[in-house]
Design a protein around this nucleic acid. Structure first.
Length: 755
DNA sequence: GTGCCTCGAGTTCC
DNA sequence: CTCGAGGCAC
């Protein structure tokens, strides 16, 4: 850092507003100048370290006085590129994955679901396309005015990595295309042919470089090279099979669209076929499976898509997969090996998860030495309901076990060879105490998981909670990943034992920088970067904060629901606090209802459920607003009593609450706006469909309405905003009329939402 | 009460 | 990626 400049500066937390404003102007000008110098061809005027220090201080000032940066700040610009890695790219249209089918029945169900959704009779024609599923990595290529402007990996589907310079080196990918739509995103698979893979590995071995386990890894490793020259030297290929954003429709059917892509100069898979019946799909699958070994490239199944693009549009998407396509996977590859040990891992919720330590074995081109064993029932050979799995065969240390990779990724134990079981092998005894902290580990009735009861006292839980806290959807602090958390957790001099410690790391110890930079893998620059990254996250959106707390049953989606409902941290805290007294009452009421059920059963009378529940809630009286706060929480869409109990319990455990309060003291929590208003005439409305719908099925109508931001309900109440009534509508239409709710027919509905 | 669908929490290897 | 289970509609 620029020592003379910063030594004289006032700590940011002691700056007054006027001083901050003056300094902000100066820093903003310097950072902007450095950004210009960097982006232009000029040699940068200042070193990276000085730049980082300037920017860190600028950001720190903006954290404290956010209004200063409102008109725009150079801190938002990307200055020096990250030392490694690729820029992130947000996909204009999400890159989804496909649902899987493993059997002919799964495929028949897929076909049945589609026919049901579209309301097609069983015999009606419905054409599919079928193509081999290439085992590579998917890539999205964006063309504007016919020129390749961006190539991005799939990433998590929302955001991928910008690998444009690398993609330009792939011969199958045209730099320019003629007569194309103004905007065209072509999607497909980057892969490496088997022969090319062998040759590459031979070259790698000869050069003393590391070899790749399989063509897919080689393709992925080659595409994600920081130096495009390396990628250029790798034999990568590309098949186009889909598209993202397009400024005009490509075609009317999938087959035509693929033909158009081929016309633009893309390689498309020559085995793509149209199939008119399930029998044709089955024959295609069998044929491809037969050719698999001689194709020259790896595939892991075949993909079926509804051919008619208008039908694809009607079918639309579920949360992570299209309804109109499915991958029919080949059977997983299997391998036998010896189970050497069973270890227990403790997760952030205290779950004890057994992991099989295996004698290393190659499964589908990858060496596997660990596999999940799920839970204690899975080891014992029965499922949660007590039904036998693996014919009831249990798993013992020393057994020969059959391993496969579920979805070609997660290793699992499929079977046990009892004939090879060593004499003296004992049934595995699942621990009833936490192997990490010794606390009792108990299994709630009906739960398949045994959990450590140590809570924050358990070091394993504490460290896993911290890892969750810094993970991607949560605080996502650059330079503070799982490995660094482990390091800091175990560090006696500079420990991080709870989230609040992260934000005192720099301040706790002026010498921390010196201590950090002398550690393995840490230099002054990386320590500075870490502190700057932490500073950047002092301001955090409410949804991320709630998610980061790691409350059981509160994941990313529920956290976002809560944040949108309460809007800001004080309101959220106030609501959870207010609901506190109702928590015990809820539990007492449910216990009383259980008791009443049992009593009624014994006495052979009808249980008086709501009377019992109401009585417990009513007496003794609860503090003002407690029940209202509880009901408000439980009535949020997607939140029920399980989530509410978990949430309120967490905030009312003194140790947990103290830890949360300590954390919050370091943060500026950004408000979250109510559910993003979709721009449609029905956004936010509650709609009921009734009677016979003639132009669409009920499922389709519901999906369309929800995509437009409406809530679809099954029954008419005073909350209903609109009723769409087809012929034969009965009591619901009457109820709507009585309540004075607007009722329209199907055509009016279609006109309202635009066809 | 039953049956979807979605979400959460767990896992491996590169 | 998969499993279990929570939430909710039927």
């Amino acid at each position: 850092m620029s020592g003379d400049g910063d030594a004289r500066t006032v700590p940011v937390d002691r700056l007054d507003r006027a001083g901050a404003a003056t300094e902000w102007l100066r820093l903003a000008a310097e950072v902007a100048a450095a950004n210009r110098a960097y982006h232009g061809a000029d040699a940068p005027e200042i070193s990276d370290a000085d730049y980082d220090a300037l920017k860190a201080r600028l950001i720190a000032i903006e954290e404290r006085f956010p209004d200063l940066a409102e008109a725009g700040s150079p801190s938002a610009e990307v200055g020096a590129p990250p030392a490694e890695g690729f820029a992130k790219v947000r996909h204009a249209v999400r890159m989804l994955s496909l649902g899987n089918a493993f059997t002919a029945e799964d495929v028949a169900e897929f076909d049945g679901r589609i026919r049901g959704f579209l309301n097609l009779p069983a015999g009606a024609p419905l054409a599919y396309t079928a193509e081999p599923k290439i085992d590579g990595l998917s890539l999205s290529l964006r063309y504007e005015a016919g020129r390749l402007v961006q190539a991005a990996t799939r990433g998590d589907g929302e955001t991928g990595e910008n690998v444009t310079p690398n993609a330009r080196t792939i011969a199958d990918i045209p730099q320019r295309i003629d007569a194309a739509p103004e905007v065209l995103e072509v999607r497909g698979e980057v892969y490496m042919a088997g022969a090319d893979f062998e040759a590459l590995n031979a070259r790698q071995a000869a050069a003393g470089a590391k070899t790749f386990a399989n063509p897919r890894n080689a393709a992925a490793g080659s595409l994600r090279q920081l130096d495009p020259a390396v990628t250029a030297a790798r034999p990568l290929r590309f098949f186009a099979y889909a598209w993202g954003e397009v400024s005009e429709p490509l075609a009317e059917t999938q087959m035509q669209a693929i033909a158009r892509l081929a016309g633009f100069g893309f390689a498309t898979n020559p085995l793509t076929r149209r199939c008119d019946t399930l029998a044709e799909l089955a024959a295609y699958y069998a044929g491809i499976e037969e050719q698999r070994a001689t194709l020259g490239y790896d595939i892991d199944g075949v993909v079926y898509k509804v051919d008619d693009l208008a039908l694809q549009a009607r079918l639309g998407y579920r949360s992570t997969t299209p309804r109109w396509a499915i991958a029919h996977k080949f059977p997983a590859q299997l391998a036998w090996t010896r189970l050497e040990a069973i270890d227990i891992q403790v997760g952030r919720t205290g779950a004890l998860s057994p992991v099989a330590r295996l004698h290393p074995v190659t499964v589908g081109g990858v060496v596997v030495s660990n596999a999940t064993l799920h839970n204690e029932d899975y080891i014992a050979g029965r499922d949660a309901r007590g039904n036998p799995i693996r014919d009831g065969k249990d798993i013992r240390v020393g057994d020969w076990v059959q391993v496969y990779r579920a979805g070609d990724v997660i290793p699992k134990v499929a079977d046990v060879d009892l004939s090879k079981r060593p004499g003296g092998a004992e049934p595995y005894v699942f621990p009833d105490h936490c192997p990490e902290c010794g606390s009792e580990a108990i299994r709630e009735p009906g739960d398949s998981v045994r959990r450590c009861t140590g809570g924050l006292v358990c070091p394993a839980q504490a460290v896993e909670k911290l890892k969750h806290f810094v993970s991607r959807g949560a605080f996502d602090i650059e330079g503070l990943g799982a490995k660094q958390i482990e390091m800091f957790f175990a560090d006696a001099a500079l420990p991080i034992r709870e989230p609040a410690d992260i934000f005192t790391l720099a301040a706790r110890d002026a010498a921390s920088l010196a201590r950090l930079k002398n550690r393995d893998g840490w230099g002054e620059k990386s320590a500075q970067n870490l502190f700057a990254a932490i500073e950047e996250r002092r301001r955090i959106p409410l949804d991320r904060l709630i998610f980061a707390l790691g409350i059981r049953h509160v994941g990313e989606v529920v956290a976002a629901d809560l944040a949108r409902h309460y809007g800001n941290w004080p309101a959220f805290l106030a609501a959870v606090d207010a609901a506190g007294p109702a928590l015990a009452r809820h539990l007492a009421a449910e216990a009383a209802v259980e008791a009443e059920r049992a009593a009624a059963n014994a006495e052979g009378r009808r249980a008086r459920i709501s009377e019992t529940r109401d009585a417990v809630w009513a007496d003794p009286p609860l503090p003002e607003g407690a029940r209202a706060a509880w009901m408000d929480l439980v009535n949020i869409d997607g939140i029920g009593t399980t989530v509410a109990v978990s949430l309120v319990t967490t905030f009312h455990q003194p140790a947990e609450r103290a830890s949360i309060d300590r954390l919050a003291a370091h943060l500026t929590v950004a408000d979250v706006a109510a559910r993003g208003a979709v721009d449609s005439p029905v956004a936010g409305k509650t709609i009921v469909f009734t009677g016979t719908l003639e132009k669409m099925t009920r499922a389709e109508a519901k999906a369309r309405a929800e995509a437009l931001g409406a809530k679809v309900s099954g029954s008419v109440s005073k909350k209903t905003d609109l009723v769409v009534a087809g012929p034969g509508a009965g009591s619901k239409a009457t109820a709507a009329a009585e309540l004075g709710i607007e009722t329209i027919d199907e055509d009016a509905w279609l006109a309202l939402i635009g066809g």
